[in-house]
């Protein structure tokens, strides 16, 4: 293993660039190692060994030792990545497709913004805004399709979740707008 690592290092110093996939694989595994340590630290708040009080393993044992296994496996992936035979060592494809990465990032940001807006703007502002953005700006659809879906979706959500299932969606400052509807349907 050490020889492999040295060999790789020499290769890097010699100007040979390792594949993006291999780097990504290593970074992800390292991230999982950090996560495992975090889990172990959390789990150790409860007894991780034998619990003399109740008998059997303590409350923290199950997550602690499983996180330990996770740590070892992720460590194995990191070590393995220095070998020439590592998965992705010869995979020249980029980790993210450069042609579509922008779309994925933009959609994720829009989704995050929508969830962030839910507590104060409410579902009936945040969701239509998301649909408006997604269909009109991102999807470049016509006004008829955009308008129909932007209006019909919240109406469906209201009647399905609120009226039928009695599950109230977050409304934020739009709550007073719904008082007449509550009076009518509840």
């Amino acid at each position: 293993m050490i020889t492999g690592a040295r060999g790789k290092l020499r290769a890097c110093l010699g100007g040979k660039v390792e594949t993006i996939m291999l780097t990504a694989d290593r970074v992800l595994a390292a991230g999982i190692m950090v996560l495992s340590v975090y889990f172990m630290w959390h789990a150790s708040a409860l007894p991780i060994g034998w619990n003399g009080m109740t008998g059997g393993p303590g409350g923290g044992a199950f997550p602690f030792w499983l996180s330990g296994i996770m740590f070892l496996c992720a460590g194995g992936i990191v070590l393995r990545s220095f070998k020439d035979s590592a998965p992705f060592a010869k995979d020249d494809t980029p980790f993210f497709d450069p042609d579509t990465l922008r779309s994925v990032v933009v959609v994720t940001l829009a989704l995050t913004a929508t969830v962030a807006a839910l507590p104060f703007a409410g579902a009936y502002i945040a969701i239509p805004m998301f649909l408006l953005w997604y269909l009109k700006i991102y999807g470049k659809h016509g006004w008829v399709l955009t308008g129909a879906l932007t209006i019909c979706t919240p109406v469906f959500l209201f009647f399905f979740f609120e009226v039928t299932l009695k599950i109230l969606l977050p409304k934020g400052w739009t709550e007073p707008w719904f008082f007449p509807l509550y009076a009518r349907f509840f």
Binding site: L118, A123, F130, L131, Y134, Y138, H141, L149, L157
Partner: peptide
């Protein structure tokens, strides 16, 4: 894009419900 947007909305609302 139509399918995606609707699935996203269902995921958010369905996850909250």
């Amino acid at each position: 894009t139509v399918l995606c947007s609707l699935v996203f909305v269902l995921c958010l609302v369905g996850g909250f419900a």
